[in-house]
Structure formats: structure tokens, C-alpha cells
Amino acid sequence: MPTGVRIRDVREQLFDAAERVLLRDGPSGLTSRAVTTEAEVAKGVLHRHFADFDGFLAEFVLDRKDRMDAQAAVLRESAGTGTVVGNIADALDAVFRSVAVAIVPLVTFRDELRARLRTTWPAGVPVLTDATLMIEAYLAGERDLGRIAPDAEIDGLAPMLVGTGHLLYADRTGPSPEPETVRKAVASVLASVLR
């Protein structure tokens, strides 16, 4: 990128580049040089917009977490339609086929990133915590509609479902699980509360 040429939406360009590098090369391959090379900008561009690389990564993680809001709305609106198992299996697939599965080891890999996220995010890994809250809200809606038991402990079921999903999708180098495998796992977790 020639010096003096204004870059439109530079933050988004850098975040998109970081996502591609993270998905392709994993957390150990995610460096400021790799991001700027992928974004086809000078290395100084990243440092003009962010105090340092861990500050960039913290904003990147929170930006990707915020993208789950639309997905959460779709899941909440699906309450009462389709099947509970199918709706949750589809939601887990959408979460874990995204960059979410790669963000978990990134946050685990970088101590300074975890420390920075703790200042704005009190517990857990942002994308996994949001996925848990998304599923918890959906299950509450289904409970209100009578499609799951009124005494279902949704605050325990939601993290179990997200943990199960994470285990199914954790190997980012292998193929994603078959939809039927995800549905069977979800059905197993929910078996005692489905109506």
C-alpha cells in the first residue's frame, strides 16, 4: 500500500485479515506482520490504529463476539418452530464453523490478551460465553412455550451444549462433524427435558 493513500475501513480490513490468518495458521501464526501482510497494508498502519498488538487482538475478539448478536436474534426467534434439537444443532454449527473455534486457543495462547479481555469481559472466553447466553435465552423461550420441561435447569444445560459443541468442532484441521452427529449430541444433552 503506497504511503499517503487513505485506507477505507482500516479496522475492519485488519480484523478480516486477522480472521483469515487465525483460521489458516492458528494462534501461533497470528502476528502483526502476518496480519498486515494479509491485509496488504504497511505494518505501521496497525500501530497507528491500535496501541499495540494485544490491544488489536482484544478489539478483534470483541468485534467477532459482537457479530453473534444477529445469530442470537435468529435463534431466539426460532423458539416454537422446527425442533428444539434442530434449532440448537444449527446454532452450534453456525458458532463453531465461524472463527469462534479458533478464538478459544488464541485467548488461551496469549496471557496478555486474556488480561486485557478481563478488563471488559469478566469471565470465560467471549465467544463461548456469548454462545452460552444465546442458547440459555433460547431455552428459556422454549421453556415458556412448554417445549422443554418447566423445571429444566437451562443455566446448566446451555454450557453443557456449548462445551459439547466445542469438543465436536475443536479440531480445526479435520473435517467438521456431520450434522447428524451434532443433532445426536444435542438430543443426548436435552433428552430428559424435551417435551
Rank of each mutant, 00 (worst) to 15 (best):
E77W: 00
K65S: 06
F50P: 11
L57R: 05
A79V: 08
K43D: 15
L75G: 09
D63Y: 08
A42K: 13
H49M: 01
F60I: 03
L75I: 05
H49L: 06
A70C: 00
L46P: 11
D52C: 07
D63C: 01
A70K: 05
A42G: 14
E40I: 01
A73Y: 02
A51M: 02
A79W: 05
E38H: 01
V45T: 15
V61A: 06
S78V: 07
F53E: 11
R76H: 11
V61D: 07
A73E: 13
E59M: 06
A58P: 08
V45G: 00
A70D: 14
R67Q: 13
A58H: 01
A42N: 08
A39T: 06
H47R: 11
V41R: 04
A51G: 10
H47Q: 04
F56T: 03
V45E: 15
E38P: 07
L75R: 05
S78W: 07
Q71L: 13
D63S: 11
A42M: 05
E40V: 11
A42D: 15
F60E: 03
M68K: 02
V61Y: 03
K43S: 14
K65E: 14
D69R: 12
A39V: 06
V74I: 13
E77T: 05
E38A: 15
V45S: 14
R76K: 14
R76D: 15
V41G: 03
F53L: 12
A58G: 05
D66S: 13
D69T: 13
R48C: 02
D69W: 01
R67L: 11
A79K: 04
F53R: 07
G55A: 08
R67W: 03
A70G: 14
R48I: 05
G44P: 06
S78G: 05
F50C: 06
E77L: 13
A70E: 12
S78A: 15
Q71H: 11
F50W: 13
A42Y: 09
K65C: 10
F50D: 03
F53S: 10
A51P: 02
L57N: 02
E77Y: 01
A42C: 00
V41E: 02
E77P: 02
F60S: 08
L46R: 10
L75A: 07
K65H: 10
D52R: 05
A42T: 09
V45A: 13
S78H: 10
V74R: 15
D52T: 07
G44N: 12
